[in-house]
Each structure stands twice: as C-alpha cells, then as structure tokens.
Design a protein around this nucleic acid. Structure first.
Lengths: 346, 346
DNA sequence: GTGAAAGCGCTAACAA
DNA sequence: TTGTTAGCGCTTTCAC
C-alpha cells in the first residue's frame, strides 16, 4: 500500500487540466456557470487524482462549518438514543456533521457544553435541557452571533427558538384520567424537576384530571425525584409506609415506573389490583415487566428528525420556518398494569 | 443584546497591545519563549476583546482537526449508548470533538460512514463493526494516511490496530458450562453473524463447554439471527415446535433472551424449570424480566473509555501504545432464569 | 524574547 | 463560460 504524502488540491487538478482553480472549485460544487462537459471532465480527473475537499480552507473562507451541535442530558436513555438516531439520519442526509455532548443533567455542565460547541463554531444547536437549568443566559453567546437553536422535548421559551414537543399537559391529563376511570382515588404523581416543561406540564395535567373528578389534591401524593431507577425503588418504599396506601401511580417515565413496580411486588403488593400504574415513554421495558406497563407512547425518533429538519431549515433560510412550536402526537397505550376493572388479554 | 458582527482575530489583539500576531499566537498556546507577564497581559486582553480561537485557520495550517470519528452499528442499544458515554467523557477531557455515525449494521453503510469521516479529516477513528462487514478494504484510505483506528467490541485484525474487547470465548464457555451444571443437556445457541468475533467466539466457547462435558453437538441447536426482539420471538416459536424441546438457551444478547422468554412464557413454558436461559450484556432489562435473567456483565462504559484513551495515546505519540489488544474482565451474573437446581432468593 | 512574512486550500468579487 | 486575484486567521521558520 503506497502512502500518499501531500494532499491533492484544486490547484493540482487545475494544472493537470490546464484550467483555473476557480473553475475547478465551481465545477466541484455544481455551479451553474460551468459547462456540463467541463464539469464532467473535472469530476473524473479530480477523482482519479485522489482529490478531496478541504473543509477547513472552505470553512475559513465561508464562515460556516456544516456542523451541528447537540446537547442532551444523557445518552444512555432509550428515548435520547432513539431521538439521536432520528437527528443523525436527517443531518447526515443534508451533509452536516454532528457534535454530540452530554450535560449529565447538570446546569453547570450544560453551560460548558454550550461554550465548547460555540467555540467549535457549530452552525446551529439542538438541545434538550438538563434537570436543573434555571436560566437561559448561557445561550446568549449563540444568540449574539445569530446561531439558531432548536429545543426538543425539554424546552424553554427564548428568543423565538423553535421547540419540538408533545402535549405533555394533555398526556398527563389522559394518564391520570385513565387511572381515575379505573377507580383510583388516591393517585401518586412521581415526576422530575418542575423547572422542566415535561414534568411541570404532566403535573398540570394530573392536577386538572383530579380537579375535574372532584378528587381532593394531597401534596403528599406528589413526589419529585431525579427519575432514576433508584428513585423508583425509594418511591416504592415510601409508598409501602403510607397509610392509607395509594391506589394508583402516574410516573413521568417508564424507568421509575418499572423500578417502583418491581419493588412493590417484592413487598407482595398486587399490581394493578392494589395499585395501578401508568408510566411514560413506551420504552421496550414496558412490554417486559409483568404486568405489562400502561404508558404514553412518545415519538422519539420523529422528534429528533423534526428538530433536525427545523434547524436545517433555519440554517438554509433564516426567514423561513418562523414557527415557534411543533407539537407531535402522543398516545396512551393501555396494558395490564393499570386495568383494575376489565381483564386485558395477557 | 448587542450583536457583534466580525470575529476578533489575533491581529486585533496584536494591534491593541502593540505586539505582533506571532507573539499573540505563541502566548495563547503557552509557548515557553514568551515572558510570563506578556502572556498574562495577552490572555486578559484577548478575553476582554472576545477573542476566540479559530479552529479552521489553525487546522488549515496544522493538518489535524482535533476531531475523532466514531462508527457504531446502532445508537439505540444500551451497550452502545453506555460505551459512547465513556468515549465522550475521555475525548472531551482531552479537547477532542466527536463525530458519531451509525452503520445501521450494514457493510455498505459502514463504507460510506468511513468515507464521510475520512473526508471530514478526523484525526482518528473508533469503530465497532457492522454485522455483515466482510473485509477491511474500506479502511485502506485511513491506513494510507496513517490515521489510527481503534476497534472496540466488534473488532477485526488489521494493520496492528488496537482492539478493546472482553474474552468472548471464555464468557461463552462460562455461560454454557453454567447451564450444563444446572443439568441442561440440549442447549440452544442463539447468536449473530459469525463474521463478528463477538458471536463466533461466544459460539466457540459454547462448543468447547459441550465438548468438555461430552455432550453431542447438534447443528439444529444453533440459531443465527440479527439479534433483534423479533428474532427472539421467532426463536421461541421455533423452539416450541422442536421435539424434543431444548432444556437450555444461551443467547448472545439480553434483548433476544428477554424476547424469547416472554414468548415462551406466553406458551406456558416454565423458565427455568423447563428451559433455562442465559443472556449476555447485563442490560437493565435483565433485572426486570421475570424470572430475572442470568447474564454476562460487560463493562460497556470502560470499553468506551479505554478505546478513546488508546486512540488519543496513539494520536499524541504514534510510537507509544504499541499494544494490539486490551481484554477487559467480564462476569457471569447468576439469576433465577438459569437456576434449575437451587432456589435463588427472589 | 519578539517580529516579519509566507502560505495552508479554498472561494467570490471582479474582470474578461 | 472561464480566469485573476485577494484574502479568510493562524502558525512557523527565519531573522534579529
């Protein structure tokens, strides 16, 4: 295998073809002012010579990098991994590179991620906020330079950025209403930090469902946690100590729902007979736990795809895409974990 | 908020301080030839002026990009997401950017991923191979330019690249031996494409355990699939039609193990009494399925961290790090799904 | 310890 | 339709 040392440049191609560098440059990017035959000739010769486009020279001139930054709370959740799959699909189709970083659910780390991506000169940013992000000041460096930002899932209102979400209020309302229909009267809400729309909205839906059904709200039935497996286990233990015990749980993700169920069952509680459970996200695990988990289906991949598409639209034409929020459909999937009345087929 | 238009360059800083651009450049990268006080002054003024390093100009000169490419089969598996977390941690510590792409388990797509990353001028590459990659020719463009490659998990021998793996042979042997100890004699092996070390090695371990225990090998007990949920379900259906039925299953991942168990249980098969099951990966789901899944624990995060560390070592000093394979520890975790003899605490 | 100057490879304004 | 030319911002060799 011969190791080629120096890179082939458009100058080399130009010399080989007795043309000027600009003609080569234009031909390679399909500029309309170049004759078809010339283009074809240039393409083939460039290929044969092993020419490859130098992004750095190009970026240096053009002031954009064809790179999109992504900040997610954590990579290893099924929802995020799936959303990223969608993002990657779209961005790669449009020839954008992706720089992915994790805020580890921490405001502080989120600030540093954004600063790093800013210094990497990303053309735009996709972000889902960390748990405890309290203000948006760290986005100012981006806004100052007109770098577009698209929020997905965990969103915030700022500078007319686009947000891609589902109707978390409605989903929370539906989940809670479903529990009430099943005869639940003492329903736990287990959610994450109320700073985040996903949790505060689901909570708002929960409250609304209680109100409409004239069920008194009890602050003790609201549990705020970091939504980890551990949090689910601890919630179960807390529930076991409650008197009277709740008869329903609505948790804002499947991970804690499953952890809670596992722990409750260990203590001999019957699900759903004694306590009915509804989760959120429709992760694969929801169909493995016994009883199968009632949950809200959530179009993760699509959210990613639409977020990426919106950002690219903004990048291509900063006028277009003047929408501010895109709301995708969700879906309550009823399984055994919440069915107190009827029997579902198992 | 004032929108700043033009970028501040080292020339601007130089002019402001009545120094030359080269001094600024040197000071900013802590060159020893610059006086400490000069450096400090330059640093503060540059900061005040809003100077930020321009990677493109720098890359254009220096011929490297501080970017590492990653190719994974799929993002949305727990193992990969966790490995990526490890990779991201290390690379970001060393100031590298990450470009992540997915081969979607396809050789063809893998070729295009590598070509794209090559054109993005990545300094090095981390890769876990797709299912059906049959040769390594698509890596030649990298080797020709001395771009180092580190394989992790799904590896291949080529050009003395570093590989980060576990001892899949031993793990397969241990898993199968454990089933045999539990009294299994007719053990299914459910694995992926034998082109991939992870599957062929686990299979080799399976064969070795059978041999050592004088159990006749039966080709019908080997099932090769794409290791999806669907494949697990289909395998279960196939097993249900088998006469006599197997009494043990060793599957090369937890996803198929769980899908198989779910389907077998639907048909009334008792796990582990009638069929014992051992999976691979110790994904969270293995502790949710009833009975809890016996599986091989696999240090995903560490594999990612070590892969990234090795690559960076190669990048910093192409001499050092002349090792070819790093083998990490795995661990058989025995849970109820395989315990025919004794009772585990539930 | 600091400065001058050339050039990395590409693009786009302007010229022809 | 094609060519000329001037830089984008940084690094580095060589000079002082």
């Amino acid at each position: 295998m011969v190791k080629s040392s120096r890179e082939v440049t458009i100058y080399d191609v130009a010399k080989a073809l007795n043309l000027s560098p600009s003609t080569i440059s234009r031909a390679l990017k399909d500029h309309p002012h170049i004759r078809k035959e010339t283009k074809k000739k240039i393409r083939t010769v460039a290929g044969e010579m092993g020419y490859r486009h130098n992004k750095f020279a190009s970026n240096l001139r053009q002031k954009y990098t064809n790179t999109i930054g992504v900040v997610v709370p954590r990579l290893n959740s099924h929802f995020m991994a799936t959303a990223l799959t969608g993002i990657e699909k779209i961005t790669s189709e449009y020839g954008y590179g992706l720089i992915i970083s994790q805020s580890q659910e921490s405001w502080r780390k989120e600030i540093s991620c954004i600063s790093t991506l800013f210094n990497s000169r990303v053309d735009g940013l996709l972000i889902s906020l960390a748990f405890d992000t309290k203000n948006m000041n760290h986005f100012d460096i981006l806004f100052k330079k007109d770098i577009p930002v698209v929020f997905f899932d965990r969103v915030a209102d700022c500078h007319g950025c686009v947000s891609i979400i589902i109707d978390n209020y409605k989903a929370g309302y539906e989940a809670t209403s479903h529990l009430i229909e099943q005869g639940c009267r003492k329903i736990i809400y287990l959610g994450g930090n109320m700073l985040r729309n996903v949790y505060s909205e689901r909570y708002r839906g929960y409250r609304q469902a209680l109100d409409e059904n004239k069920i008194d709200f009890d602050q003790n039935m609201v549990i705020i946690s970091d939504m980890s497996v551990q949090a689910g286990t601890e919630t179960a233990r807390k529930i076991l100590r409650m008197k009277p015990k709740p008869d329903g749980i609505f948790t804002a993700n499947d991970t804690t729902a499953v952890a809670t169920i596992v722990e409750l069952e260990k203590a001999g509680i019957k699900i759903p007979e004694e306590i009915a459970v509804v989760g959120f996200n429709n992760e694969p695990i929801s169909q493995v736990i016994q009883p199968n988990l009632t949950t809200i289906d959530y179009p993760a991949r699509e959210i990613g795809e639409i977020a990426a598409t919106s950002l690219i639209a903004k990048l291509k034409d900063s006028q277009t895409a003047n929408l501010s929020t895109i709301v995708l459909k969700h879906n309550l999937i009823v399984r055994q974990s919440s069915l107190k009345n009827n029997n579902a087929d198992s």
